[in-house]
């Protein structure tokens, strides 16, 4: 069980401030939702969290490990799914998963069993020898999800895992997220799907213009947004991001 601690995180791209003094704590085993309009800084935050981008300042700890100081150790604990995962289209599904498993340090005897079970649970068993480039978008997303969890990570970072998926695939991805939660995996989930955030996430952070504008469970977010007690997350989100948007630049 691992907790995530982000302190005073800032990320600049030249003069653009993508993340501005972001601080968050995600408890071990918690599912944490990240909401925000397009370009708010969600993907930058997640990429920095998994060590793809280097922070301009601030610290990120996965358990006790600093992602900048000991990236290799931290990355062994993380499973990351990007918004638009691009896979090696010239490899078969099995080869792709074997490759990813190997570079993430999965033992040979465990890897084959893990791949077989995951392919079965996602009903991709008969696509084992199909080239990834010939799979449908939904199938590729499932393959990417399997790749994310092959090394049984203690932390999952999922960037828009349900974008542009058909209803059937959405259900299987939601089930998969639920399964990971039951296993006690600490999960950060960025999504535009407010229902998913409301259903799966214990707490939600709303990010806008690179700043966290609100954090809490749905009840406390409603209070922060001064909405009614039964207000939908969508109304809460709109109110909080509108208020931020009205501030002078």
């Amino acid at each position: 069980m691992v907790e995530i601690s982000i302190e005073s995180l800032t990320k600049h791209y030249g003069t653009l401030v993508a993340l501005d003094n972001v601080s968050l704590k995600v408890a071990s085993g918690e599912v944490f939702g990240l909401l925000g309009p397009n370009g708010a800084g969600k993907s930058t935050l997640l990429k920095t969290l998994v060590g793809i981008l280097r922070p301009t300042s601030g610290t990120i700890r996965i358990g006790q490990i600093d992602i900048v100081g000991s990236p290799e150790k931290a990355k062994r604990m993380i499973g990351y799914l990007p918004e638009n995962p691009s896979l090696y289209t010239g490899l078969t599904t099995q080869e792709f998963l074997q490759f990813v498993g190997k570079i993430r340090g999965v033992a040979d005897d465990v890897l084959d069993q893990e791949i077989s079970e995951s392919l079965k649970s996602f009903m991709l068993d008969e696509k084992r020898n199909s080239l990834v480039g010939t799979l449908s978008k939904g199938m590729k997303q499932k393959v990417a999800l399997i790749a994310t969890s092959l090394h049984t990570p203690q932390v999952l970072v999922l960037d828009e895992p349900l974008t542009a998926l058909d209803p059937k695939t959405r259900v299987s991805v939601k089930d998969w997220i639920g399964g990971q939660t039951k296993r006690g995996v600490t999960t950060i989930l960025s999504t535009h799907d407010l229902d998913v955030a409301q259903t799966h996430a214990g707490r939600i952070a709303i990010i806008d213009h690179g700043k966290i504008v609100a954090v809490g469970d749905i009840e406390s977010l409603r209070k922060m947004a001064n909405t009614e007690s039964d207000a939908r997350l969508e109304d809460v989100f709109l109110r909080l991001t509108e208020e931020k948007g009205e501030e002078p630049a």
């Binding site: 793809i52 990236p71 150790k73 691009s86 090696y88 990813v100 570079i103």
Partner: peptide, 11 residues
């Protein structure tokens, strides 16, 4: 396009 796989791994 595939660097996310490598950069999020410990290699």
């Amino acid at each position: 396009e595939r660097l996310w796989i490598l950069k999020s791994s410990p290699v």
